[in-house]
């Protein structure tokens, strides 16, 4: 009797009846935050490696011989400026002003490129002086840590340009707003990591 009731009656229900429809991308921000936390763990490992190996110079150059704090200060300023200009981009995005958003994104991208150029100049200068990643454990861990951060900034800049193209083509639609908010978190997160880098690597390196 029951089997005929099922086949003849309604289909079996396998979900909660009061379950509501999820808005598209409703959980994206939390998911992206979790990704950032896992990225944070990668950096924690690299910081730990640098902390352990940072004193092993193998009779090679030490932080005092290599680091130029003025350059690092300029670099830090570039990243900090790019953080606030990205903030302004988000504020203009909230108001729906496409041109202003694009302009602030472009300024952010330029600060990002300035940061990368200065960092690459610093790396090139160090390698030219013979302070290559192969020289000592200190330099291996230094290039791994700072290079990974620089790689993140590089991908962030590529992402930023991609989103500028997206906004130019489709405007500030819901999906683009969500993507811009994800990049906002990524960009500010990189600035947070840089605080650790300039404190732990550069400033404390000069104190050794």
């Amino acid at each position: 009797m029951t089997s005929t009731a099922i086949t003849a009656g309604t289909e079996p229900v396998f979900h909660l009846e009061e379950e509501h429809a999820h808005a598209e991308g409703g959980s994206t921000m939390l998911g992206f935050w979790l990704y950032l936390m896992s990225d944070c763990l990668i950096f924690a490992m690299l910081f730990a490696a640098y902390g352990v190996l940072g004193g092993n110079y193998a009779a090679g150059p030490a932080p005092k011989d290599l680091f130029d704090l003025d350059l690092v200060a300029v670099n830090t300023a570039m990243l900090l400026f790019s953080s606030i200009t990205y903030g302004f981009a988000m504020l203009t995005m909230d108001k729906g002003r496409v041109a202003a958003t694009q302009a602030w994104l472009a300024v952010t991208g330029l600060f990002g490129l300035a940061f990368l150029s200065i960092e690459l100049y610093e790396f090139a200068h160090m390698i030219h002086e013979g302070a290559t990643p192969q020289r000592s454990a200190f330099l291996s861990s230094f290039f791994t840590l700072v290079g990974t951060h620089g790689l993140h900034v590089t991908f962030g800049t590529i992402w930023l340009v991609t989103l500028m193209v997206q906004v130019a083509r489709f405007g500030l639609i819901e999906a683009n707003r969500r993507r811009l908010m994800c990049l906002s978190m990524f960009w500010h997160f990189l600035d947070v990591v840089w605080i650790g880098v300039f404190t732990f690597v550069y400033l404390m390196g000069m104190l050794r």
Binding site: H22, A23, G25, G26, M29, T76, A77, L80, S83, I84, G87, F88, M90, L91, M93, D94, E174, R177, M181, I195, F198
Partner: peptide, 28 residues
């Protein structure tokens, strides 16, 4: 979900960003 979809909750204000920037500059 509605609030997030329209981005009302997760954003700062001009004042907030400026405060953060000035504090960061000093702390750097």
């Amino acid at each position: 979900g509605h609030g997030h979809a329209h981005g009302g909750a997760a954003h700062g204000s001009f004042r907030g960003y400026l405060t953060g920037f000035v504090l960061s500059a000093i702390l750097t």
